[in-house]
C-alpha cells in the first residue's frame, strides 16, 4: 500500500512540475525514479527514455507505466499513470472553464491574438530541432551542412510535398515514411 502511495505521489509531482512537455520532463523523472527512489538504475533509465521515444505516447506516461509495472505490476502502472495525469486534469479543466467563460471579452481576445504567433514560433522551433535530428542524427548542426543523411532528406522532402499538394492525412505520411525507412535501409 505504501509503495502505491509513493508511486502515485512521485508521478503526481512529475505531472505537476513538468511544463513544456517531453524533454522538459526527463530530468524530473530521473530525479524521482533514480535518485529519490531505488526504482531504476541509470542504465534502465536511459533505456526507458529510448523506448519512450520509440513507442507512441507522451514520455511521462510511458515512463510512469514502465516504472509502475517494474515496481508493483500492472496496478502499479495504472496508479503511476493516474498520478501523472491528475495535475493536468485539474489545472487544464480549470483553464478551459476560464477560457470559454471569458474569451469573448475584447482584452482577452487581444491577449489570445497576441500569443497565437508565439505558438507558431514555438512549433517552428520544435520542427527545426526535429529536422536537424533527422538529417544529422544528432541534436546540433554539424560544421559541414552537406554531411546529411540523404535518405532522411528525401523522405522529408517527399512527405512535405505530398502534404502541401495533396493534403494527405499526416498519419499516412508518417506510416509511409516508416515503411520507406525499412525498405531503403535494409537494401543499403
Amino acid at each position: 500500500m505504501m509503495l502505491y502511495l509513493e508511486l502515485f505521489w512521485s508521478f503526481f509531482q512529475i505531472g505537476l512540475f513538468s511544463i513544456g512537455g517531453g524533454y522538459a520532463a526527463m530530468p524530473l523523472i530521473q530525479h524521482q525514479v533514480v535518485d529519490a527512489h531505488p526504482w531504476l538504475t541509470m542504465t534502465q533509465f536511459a533505456d526507458i527514455m529510448t523506448i519512450a521515444e520509440m513507442t507512441p505516447g507522451p514520455i511521462a506516461i510511458n515512463s510512469a507505466t514502465f516504472v509502475g509495472i517494474r515496481v508493483a505490476g500492472l496496478p502499479g502502472a495504472i496508479i503511476a499513470t493516474l498520478g501523472c495525469i491528475l495535475p493536468s486534469c485539474i489545472i487544464v479543466m480549470t483553464l478551459a472553464y476560464i477560457y470559454y467563460r471569458f474569451r469573448s471579452l475584447t482584452i482577452v481576445q487581444g491577449a489570445l491574438a497576441g500569443l497565437r504567433p508565439a505558438v507558431v514560433a514555438m512549433i517552428a522551433s520544435a520542427g527545426i530541432s526535429l529536422i536537424i535530428l533527422s538529417f544529422y542524427e544528432q541534436r546540433t548542426l554539424p560544421k559541414d551542412w552537406s554531411d546529411a543523411n540523404y535518405v532522411s532528406v528525401i523522405i522529408f522532402g517527399a512527405g512535405l510535398l505530398i502534404l502541401r499538394k495533396w493534403k494527405l492525412n499526416p498519419i499516412y505520411v508518417m506510416a509511409g515514411a516508416g515503411v520507406c525507412g525499412i525498405l531503403v535501409y535494409s537494401v543499403i
Binding site: L130, V173, I182
Partner: peptide, 21 residues
C-alpha cells in the same frame, strides 16, 4: 530503420503545420 524513416516523416508533418498556421 522504421524509426529513422518516421522521424523524417514527422519533421515533414510539423513543417506543413507551421506553414499552414
Amino acid at each position: 530503420m522504421a524509426m529513422m524513416g518516421m522521424t523524417a516523416g514527422v519533421a515533414a508533418v510539423i513543417c506543413d503545420v507551421v506553414l499552414t498556421m
